[in-house]
């Protein structure tokens, strides 16, 4: 009998440290599948963030670098400029990419660095225990917004993808979700295009992935998936932004 569903070569065969129902595992796998399919495992270099995915390099089976919190796109810029023939991607959460690293994000995008950005938006700081993120929804309760996010005190959820799409040097921005098999297939298509763009020297490409964090949303894994579809995707509409 032929094996039709296999572990991607770019993913190590070990268990992860992620919570049950977390989206990181799916996102890691999508990247690994895409790297395999594009046959770039031997020239891809990943940049892992500070956040829950801090040890993403333990799961991917290709060259990786860490980056200080928020600085992934500065590190990626350094690597890509030295090695333009390699394929460089960053994997960053909402706190990393859209709070502490907003400056690095906007300027790398504005320079039109030919890199791929996988942006995991789960509307929360997971690693540090569920604090309010720049993408936390209005009324969403977190340990640092115990009464729920209020626009008067905390402002509105930051739509960094829309901001980036307004920059001339940015070539591709799409928002996808992991809330169902159908959406996961769409997410993979977007991730693949974002890597293909880099291979084709098209320029800065970013995929924002709405991803569940049942632990700090205080939900079951299924409730978290439903919440993405019914609530989060209303604030962060899916589809191609640029």
């Amino acid at each position: 009998m032929e094996k039709t569903f296999k572990k991607p070569q770019s993913l190590r065969d070990i268990s992860t440290h992620y919570c049950p129902g977390c989206g990181h595992g799916i996102a890691h796998r999508l990247i690994a599948e895409v790297v395999d399919e594009l046959e770039i495992r031997e020239r891809v270099i990943g940049v892992a963030p500070v956040g829950c995915a801090v040890i993403a390099y333990d799961y991917w089976d290709f060259d990786c670098s860490e980056a200080a919190h928020g600085r992934a796109l500065a590190v990626a810029t350094g690597i890509k400029r030295v090695r333009p023939q390699n394929i460089i991607f960053t994997y960053q959460g909402d706190g990393d990419l859209a709070a502490i690293g907003t400056n690095e994000t906007i300027h790398a995008a504005n320079r039109g660095e030919n890199v791929t950005v996988i942006f995991i938006n789960n509307a929360i700081y997971g690693m540090t225990g569920g604090q309010m993120a720049p993408t936390t929804l209005l009324a969403q309760k977190t340990v640092t917004s115990p009464e729920g996010r209020q626009e008067r005190l905390h402002g509105y959820p930051l739509k960094i993808s829309e901001i980036l799409a307004s920059l001339r040097a940015v070539k591709y921005v799409e928002r996808v979700s992991l809330d169902s098999p159908k959406e996961i297939i769409e997410a993979k298509k977007a991730v693949k295009l974002a890597f293909q763009n880099q291979i084709d020297n098209i320029g800065f490409s970013l995929v924002e992935i709405l991803s569940p964090c049942p632990t700090y949303w205080d939900m079951s894994p299924k409730e978290a998936m439903d919440w993405i579809r019914d609530v989060m995707a209303k604030e962060f509409p899916l589809g191609r932004i640029k």
């Binding site: 270099i45 940049v47 670098s65 980056a67 200080a68 600085r71 500065a74 590190v75 990626a76 810029t77 350094g78 690597i79 890509k80 400029r81 030295v82 090695r83 390699n86 400056n103 690095e104 906007i106 300027h107």
Partner: peptide, 26 residues
């Protein structure tokens, strides 16, 4: 060689981190 005017000192030193990780004298 590569010259980048970075957006901040933070970005500059982290670009050096990346370039050095990629093997260049940075």
């Amino acid at each position: 060689g590569i010259f980048i005017q970075a957006e901040s000192e933070l970005a500059a030193i982290n670009m050096v981190f990346g370039a050095s990780a990629a093997g260049a004298r940075a």
